[in-house]
Nucleic acid binder design. Structure first.
Length: 474
RNA sequence: GGCGGUGUAGCCAAGUGGUAAGGCAGAGGUCUGCAAAACCUUAAUCGUCGGUUCGACUCCGAUCGCCGCCUCCA
């Protein structure tokens, strides 16, 4: 497998630290609101990657944190008149709900910053002891220039960073920092009502960057196989994580850095992009969009590419899903009927070849477009065979099984895709379908069409096949 | 100003120094009592201008546009 490593800006052969296993850390959300579509993108991108590793037989240890204390948390809690822990708890639950709806596998572990305070303090103390950090008036800062490789990941040079940083640092902070590019490891408590923990430097809370260094190394070891996150985290977040972790351990922190692309939302796409800079939450989207469609749409774009969230693109995804569904339904019906088919060498070969193409594409830095193309190209022959008098049941069965596995990598649950929504009017529908079959036998087309219209109003769509009439809910 | 990405048919999108995969939508057709589904057929010379080359969409240079990061952010 080849992965595009941000560290080297090229695709590299993946070599896990431990054969057959993958350790992954993915930066999770700050839980002060429902996750937005960008958070979902990241979660889906890395879930897809994780699932493909699992498809290949790797055991994946997937750790993803919740940032449950920081400025945004504090401000939001104040605004709502609640506490930071209450806010965190509420939105962690919402996160789990949303990601479950999107069929994102739950992380092996979801550590939270506030549950790791002692480890964070120890980590910071070590950095101070080693001369990489200094205390200043209740804050602790990381001495960025002390770390020789600072800026490597994002290809930034120190002088330019310094220039940029100096323009943004506020006076108060500036006074405490030795250098504008130094960043906070520990932030002293500012107001009495501000959540804080005791530390050697007084009451305060951890800075944002340190928590990820602490939690990733604590749970996955000094060196990880893969660390992921959005492109915006490259700098400064991941740059800082490297500086912190490597300064402490003296070892390489991460072998493969993976960064997912952004989601853009068109101005005139939907009403969703109200005010907050197209701040679209998954919670809101799922009120109108089938979670499977959203999931497939977002998983069907290579993780490094930008995604344009639009109604039209969602429709495209829904149409493709419909094709998969029809194919699987067709196969299932066929497998259920009594007609024994004949082995078809061409079809058997197609299944093998499609598997090879799918895997070759995914092995190439998760090229999902080409992986899907492999599937699309197999569909006509499969559908034809499933409709033919002499269906090759064995190959169809195998293809259906493979397709389920492939779609599962994309986070689609075939059973859910095919599930006829439980309705308590099944008996009524069956009865109407039977009446229509009777009418058709008598060539009473008027009656037949009338019944079909009636069913359509009930949300039921019919397909007349040589093997009989099939129905499904739309 | 610094760093990075991107520009291929209406839309999504792959790709290689040798003459443009695939999908969605659309159109036509087959099948069907009619439909639905399925199947078949069907569209672009690759932002622009130069250069290198026998030959470039693919390499180099310039230029225009779009996006992101450099400050909290997936």
């Amino acid at each position: 497998m080849k992965l595009f490593n941000t560290l080297t800006r090229q695709k590299e052969e993946f070599k896990p630290l431990v054969p057959g296993q993958v350790s992954m850390y993915v930066c999770g959300p700050t839980v002060y609101n429902y996750i937005h579509i960008g958070n979902a993108r990241s979660a889906i991108a890395f879930d897809t990657i994780r699932r493909y590793f699992e498809y290949k037989g790797y055991k994946v240890n997937y750790v993803s944190n919740f940032t449950d204390v920081d400025d945004k948390m504090i401000n939001e809690a104040r605004a709502e008149g609640t506490t930071v822990p209450e806010l965190a708890e509420r939105y962690i639950q919402a996160f789990l709900e949303d990601t479950r709806a999107l069929n994102i596998e739950e992380a092996t572990l979801h550590p939270r910053a506030t549950h790791e305070i002692p480890a964070i303090i120890d980590f910071i103390q070590t950095l101070i002891d080693k001369g990489y950090a200094y205390e200043a008036d209740g804050d602790v800062y990381y001495r960025a220039k002390k770390f020789a490789d600072y800026g490597h990941l994002s290809d930034q040079n120190i002088d330019q960073l310094e220039e940029g940083a100096s323009q943004h640092v506020n006076d108060e902070e500036q006074g405490r920092k030795e250098d504008p590019i130094d960043f906070a490891l520990w932030k002293g408590q500012k107001a009495a009502d501000e959540i804080a923990w005791d530390s050697p430097w007084g009451k305060g809370r951890p800075g944002w960057h340190i928590e990820c260094s602490v939690m990733s190394t604590k749970y996955l070891g000094d060196t990880l196989d893969i660390h992921g996150g959005g492109q915006d985290l490259e700098f400064p977040h991941h740059e800082n994580e490297i500086a912190q972790s490597e300064a402490k351990t003296g070892k390489k922190f991460v072998n493969y850095w993976l960064h997912n692309g952004f989601v853009t939302v068109g101005k005139d796409e939907e009403k969703m992009s109200k005010s907050l800079h197209n701040f679209v939450t998954v919670h809101d989207i799922l009120k109108n969009v089938d979670p499977q469609v959203l999931r497939f749409f977002m998983a069907s774009v290579q993780y490094r590419s930008q995604i344009n969230y639009s109604k039209e693109n969602l429709e495209q995804a829904a149409n493709i899903l419909g094709r998969f569904k029809n194919t699987l339904e067709g196969i299932n019906y066929r497998l259920a009927d009594a007609t024994e088919g004949l082995p078809d060498p061409d079809l058997a070969k197609l299944v093998t070849e499609t598997t090879a193409k799918f895997e070759a594409a995914m092995d190439d830095d998760f090229n999902v477009q080409n992986a899907l193309t492999a599937i699309y190209e197999a569909l006509p022959a499969v559908n034809s065979n499933a409709n033919a008098e002499k269906a090759d049941k064995e190959s169809l069965r195998l293809f259906a099984k493979k397709l389920a596995a492939w779609l599962s990598v994309f986070g689609l649950d075939v059973d859910k895709l095919l599930a006829k929504e439980a309705g308590n009017d099944d008996a009524v529908i069956e009865e109407l379908v039977a009446q229509r079959t009777e009418a058709r036998k008598n060539k009473d087309w008027a009656k037949s069409d009338e019944l079909r219209d009636q069913l359509k109003e009930m949300g039921v769509v019919l397909k007349d096949t040589p093997q009989g009439t099939r129905w499904s809910r739309e």
